[in-house]
């Protein structure tokens, strides 16, 4: 008789194995039915991944997705019973697959989907309104430091993955996408109930990145201007402040350290 710890270790290995394994602790009559557990685990985890990465799945098709998911599940099974947390490593896994070379932007689409998924489940927080900003304003605006919304994630790609993502949403635009036409600089955020995917230009994105790192507004705008002297500062500021990227603003030194997010 094997102690339970050892048995569960072997059992788990047999569940995740690519091919059926011998299970000497089972009665011979029931050994063929062990496959039910292998199948349950594979199918349920595949569907969990498919729920988080529906566009990646549509792009590669169900068969390729199932094949890829099976490899991912075997190599990187979940470490938590909360499946909302499962799939963080899937975009990198797709990048590393020789077989996804046919779709070079697949990993980036998956990264965008992961950001949307995390934003959906992130903590709630009231976004900064004009009134809150006015209250922070006695100091020169250049000194302002912003706290980012807990749902905010940044995604960048050399491909227009936001367009790919949008046309695969229900009711999305039915336009032809020329994926290699432009890069994507995206902010994913859920200020209230709906997850927003906001596109910026390269210089605007430099400003957002700097603000998210906790740099004061003046310094962030300088960084943006060095990236592109043509940066339209007023329009960018209006966009930033109405989009709900931040929850508070305070003069540098007063502001608490901005939280970091995954």
């Amino acid at each position: 008789m094997m102690a339970l710890y050892g048995l569960q270790e072997q059992f788990a290995r047999a569940v995740l194995a690519a091919s059926p394994q011998a299970c000497p602790w089972l009665t011979p009559a029931s050994e063929p039915f062990f496959d039910i557990h292998r199948n349950n685990t594979r199918v349920l985890l595949r569907e969990a991944l498919g729920g988080v990465f529906p566009v990646a799945r549509m792009l590669v098709g169900d068969d390729f997705f199932a094949h890829t998911a099976r490899m991912f599940i075997t190599q990187m099974p979940p470490r938590s019973p909360v499946l909302l947390d499962y799939g963080r490593d899937f975009p990198d896994f797709l990048d590393a697959l020789p077989a996804s070379a046919g779709i070079s932007y697949l990993g980036d689409v998956a990264r965008l989907e992961w950001a949307v998924h995390r934003a959906y489940h992130a903590a709630n927080a009231e976004p900064l309104e004009a009134a809150g900003l006015a209250a922070a304003l006695p100091s020169p605006p250049a000194d302002l430091v912003f706290t980012t919304h807990p749902s905010l994630m940044l995604v960048r790609s050399p491909f227009a993955v936001d367009q790919i993502w949008r046309i695969h949403q229900e009711g999305g635009p039915a336009t032809e996408v020329r994926i290699e036409d432009r890069a994507a600089y995206l902010v994913v955020v859920r200020p209230r109930r709906t997850v927003e995917v906001l596109s910026f230009d390269a210089a605007g994105f430099v400003v957002v990145e700097a603000l998210v790192r906790g740099e004061p507004l003046g310094q962030a705008l300088d960084a943006g201007l060095s990236a592109s002297p043509a940066l339209a500062i007023e329009r960018l500021l209006a966009n930033l402040l109405t989009a709900g990227l931040f929850t508070s603003a305070a003069p540098v030194g007063v502001a608490e350290q901005a939280d970091s997010h995954d």
């Binding site: 059992f11 349950n40 685990t41 985890l45 470490r79």
Partner: peptide
């Protein structure tokens, strides 16, 4: 459903 810290997402039987 957990062995070695891995979560198998199935309700597995015990002896």
């Amino acid at each position: 459903s957990v062995a070695g810290g891995v979560y198998l997402n199935d309700l597995l039987p015990l002896p």
